[in-house]
Simulated scan of single mutants.
Amino acid sequence: MRQAIMPKPGAIEFNDVEKPSNIGDKEVLISVKKIGVCGSDIHVFHGKHPFTPYPVVQGHEYSGEVVETGKAVTKFKTGDKATARPQLVCGKCGPCKRGDYNICDVLKVQGFQAPGVAQDYFVLPEDRMIKLPSSMSFEIGALVEPTAVAAHCTLKAGDLKGKNVVVTGAGPIGNLVAQFARIRGANVLITDLSEYRLQKAKDCGIEHTCNPKEEKLEACLSRVFNGEGFHVGFECAGVEIALDNLIQNVNKGGDVVAVAVYGDRPRVDVSILGDRELKLIGTLMYTHEDYEQAVKYLDNGQLITEPLITKRFPFEDYLEAYRYIDDQGDQTLKVIIDL
């Protein structure tokens, strides 16, 4: 079968490897159909991801079809559509024991610290898998993973109902975070330097947008929130100035949730954090319940994703997909690899 591997930053090689044949009793073999390219994947491609060694087989946003099941598998059958959490956890450390396995002490993530799904077939344990509705396309199924990120992080600041929320960065994650915050009852403003991405946010139902190149953030806040300011900020751009803007402008006693992966270590104005009793909150990945919630809202249409898909590439053009993202920059949202 085909397999794509990144031996070093900026390179992708293709191997012909054996199809998995030893399927455990509680394991499932899927035929991988679609893979989404994530901003974190691009960090790896540029050698900027802080927790990824090389060589690495990427691919953690994906969907596939069940082609074989172990004899003890009860929730899946041949022909089912599925995806799965890419988290490999110990189940024994403190975070795992209290249910926070997404921050396991020895967490490995497939596609980063463990081999991902950039190949024709992949073996998964049943307990990490999520069944997709038969009516859901494989393409939408590949968006469950980033949607689960949004589901998880929008819970980190508590109840958002009736709160004013600012999301910095209108890439795929920022867009989905804004949509999930809206579903949770927030009044949402999303910011970005790209008019293309801001228009895509509007296409996905996010009414309020701001381009700081054209309008100062303070003016945007006044226009959208009628002088009330905002209570919660979600930083999804991965740049220091965006994080600083949220910290400098959020209401006293407010929350700032750092969602993005940063290629360079940002500086934080701790004096403002202390003086205004702000909470800077970390968030990592998701739980199984977040995946289930992502599938629910994707299936019922409350989350709009079609405008997010910019371009599709065949598996053989994996490297070209990365180059396209580099070349197109802010004119790109989600690129899909088609197997």
Rank of each mutant, 00 (worst) to 15 (best):
C96R: 06
V37S: 07
I23G: 04
H288C: 04
E18I: 13
L143D: 05
G141E: 09
L160I: 06
H288N: 10
C90R: 10
G329T: 04
P133W: 00
G171S: 11
E126I: 06
K252R: 15
K34Q: 13
F14R: 10
C236N: 10
D317K: 15
G329V: 03
P307E: 12
K108A: 12
F14T: 10
N245K: 10
I130S: 06
V66M: 11
R85F: 10
L273N: 07
V165T: 12
K19Q: 13
S134G: 11
G111P: 04
Q87I: 15
C210Y: 11
F76Q: 01
L284A: 11
E289P: 00
V256P: 01
V335R: 05
S40A: 04
V259R: 00
N187H: 15
E126D: 05
Q199H: 10
K71Q: 07
L124F: 05
G141S: 09
S63T: 05
R323C: 01
A242I: 06
T147L: 00
D290H: 07
I304M: 10
D264W: 03
K252W: 13
I190Q: 03
K108C: 07
I5W: 08
V56P: 02
S40V: 03
G229C: 07
N211P: 07
I103F: 03
F112P: 02
A157W: 05
V149T: 04
L319Y: 11
A148R: 00
D317Y: 11
K161H: 12
D244V: 12
L88A: 05
V166L: 14
H152F: 05
G70K: 04
G233V: 04
A237Y: 01
G301M: 03
I35T: 08
D127A: 08
A72M: 09
C38G: 02
D105M: 14
I337V: 07
I281Q: 08
T283I: 05
Y297C: 01
C104R: 04
Y62L: 10
P307G: 09
V149I: 11
L278Q: 07
L319G: 10
L176G: 12
P95D: 12
K75Q: 14
G94Y: 15
H49Q: 03
